[in-house]
Design a protein around this nucleic acid. Structure first.
Length: 420
RNA sequence: GUGGGCGUAGCUCAGCUGGUAGAGCUCUGGAUUGUGAUUCCAGCGGUCGUGGGUUCAAACCCCAUCGUCCACCCCA
């Protein structure tokens, strides 16, 4: 019986992992340039946190959570999203009371869905969450920040912004009942999924891809018409800020988001280049959430971006770096031992550079092959001749030129070569 | 959870109407006693996803199962 990875869990091979790290580095630099501070929150939380904050009737809570009993009988859940945990953490540690905060975090999330391209059961997210700021300027800042990340990664022309406002809980409730009334009247025109959602989550019907349902929706009441005055103003101001900064967006009234806690601004950054799982980043405002974990009422906004999907977008353009700059080949036991010492010496004296020692049997020919495959530009060769003369042969693998230097001169020479 | 495609060497794949398995890449050795990225030669490497069935005979047909991919659903 062979043991293999659990379904939906992916291994990151060296090249992939390198892409992830590159993205993380870019994201970190950009987020910190906006003054966001990094935090860490647990992967495990009590199940209640998610069922209450994300919403009992959402798909996530209903059927996608990895939930199990701890040894003492507590129900625990591996986080399916980041916001709930950050809100809990902020409240529990007193970071939110009368405070303004800008946080970011990175790490794995877990959802038990059927795996697919761009969708795994463990997936990596980077999130940003802001607290204590009610105005649209912080919403705009988050979007500028995303845009800057896309630009730095070189994928901004493949991603566009879909924007909507969901209004306050009250205005949304008013719209919801109006929509249900309308759809009840045209019940026989609905598809099966939409019929079901009419009971569970009517706003989701707006998202339906069934053409007949979409026809029906064309003359249905729209959320925009039901926005309360304040939400409307917030949305208009946000749009103005985006316009002023020439950040282009597409108003999409059917963006509703699958979590209960959103209000006012909601958005998704979407790409066509990944197939069906095109959302690369999503987020919005959640002004009522802090109150729900027992805190003083406090506005919040945030987003989460999916590293796995971003990594897929970069895959064909990304160039891996070489495994080595200097590769040391040796022949015979004394040379082999000396190679290790020399490598230590080089690493201790060079400012940067990767030094790889051939630690295995092998003829010089095969060692040189390894040197070539490693991507190194320089090979050092140490054999019996070199040992007896206290020399090291330095070979430039691009030009093929080589020379023998005495051991003391090697490091100077190498640092010059690496600088070129 | 639903639907469809695909599982053959480490990787990418070929294998006709059922007749007992092949290529390229990688790796190892040689042509070149201690010199890579080109060339040539040779070698290593397979319970044909797994279990059952049909058949004289199954990688190939049938059933089941697992995995994977794509789509639906939903989202990162």
């Amino acid at each position: 019986m062979k043991i293999q990875a659990v379904r939906g869990m992916q291994d990151l091979l060296p090249r992939q992992k390198e892409i992830y790290r590159y993205i993380e580095d870019v994201v970190r630099v950009v987020l910190e340039s906006y003054g966001y501070t990094e935090i860490g929150v647990p992967v495990l939380e009590s199940t209640q946190l998610f069922s209450r904050l994300v919403g009992e009737a959402t798909d996530i809570v209903e059927k996608e959570m990895y939930t199990f009993e701890d040894r003492n009988g507590d129900s625990l859940t591996m986080r399916p999203e980041g916001t709930a945990g950050v809100v809990r953490m902020g409240q529990e540690n007193g970071l939110l009371f009368n405070q303004i905060q800008r946080f970011w975090y990175a790490g794995p999330m877990f959802r038990h869905e059927r795996p697919q391209k761009g969708r795994y059961r463990q997936f990596e997210q980077v999130g940003a969450e802001c607290f204590g700021m009610a105005g649209p300027d912080i919403d705009a800042e988050l979007l500028f920040m995303c845009q800057r990340i896309w630009e730095t990664l070189g994928i901004s022309d493949e991603i566009h912004l879909e924007l909507n406002s969901m209004g306050t809980t009250e205005s949304r409730a008013a719209y919801r009942s109006e929509l249900v009334n309308y759809l009840e009247e045209h019940r026989d025109g609905l598809d099966k999924d939409s019929m079901r959602r009419l009971e569970t989550n009517p706003l989701r019907i707006l998202d339906s891809k069934v053409p007949k349902t979409q026809e029906l929706l064309a003359s249905a009441p729209t959320l925009t018409d039901f926005l309360d005055a304040e939400s409307k103003m917030h949305f208009d101001q946000l749009r103005r800020l985006l316009d002023q900064n020439q950040l282009f967006y597409h108003i999409n009234p059917s963006i509703v988001r699958g979590l209960d806690y959103y209000n006012k601004t909601v958005f998704e950054w979407v790409t066509d280049s990944l197939g069906a799982q095109g959302t690369v980043c999503g987020g919005g405002r959640y002004d009522g959430l802090v109150e729900q974990v027992g805190g003083k009422s406090m506005p919040g906004v945030g987003f989460a971006m999916g590293l796995d999907r971003l990594a897929m977008m970069l895959d064909d353009k990304f160039e891996s770096t070489a495994d080595a700059d200097i590769y040391i080949a040796s022949l015979g036991e004394p040379a082999r031992a000396y190679a290790l010492l020399l490598a230590e010496d080089i690493r201790g004296n060079l400012a940067h550079g990767k030094v790889v020692v051939h630690c295995a049997e092998g003829k010089l020919k095969s060692q040189m092959k390894k040197a070539d495959a490693s991507g190194a530009n320089i090979a050092l060769i140490i054999g019996e001749e070199e040992i007896s003369k206290r020399e090291v042969t330095v070979k430039d693998l691009q030009t093929g030129e080589q020379q023998s230097l005495n051991a003391e001169a090697v490091i100077d020479h190498l640092s010059k070569m690496l600088e070129e």
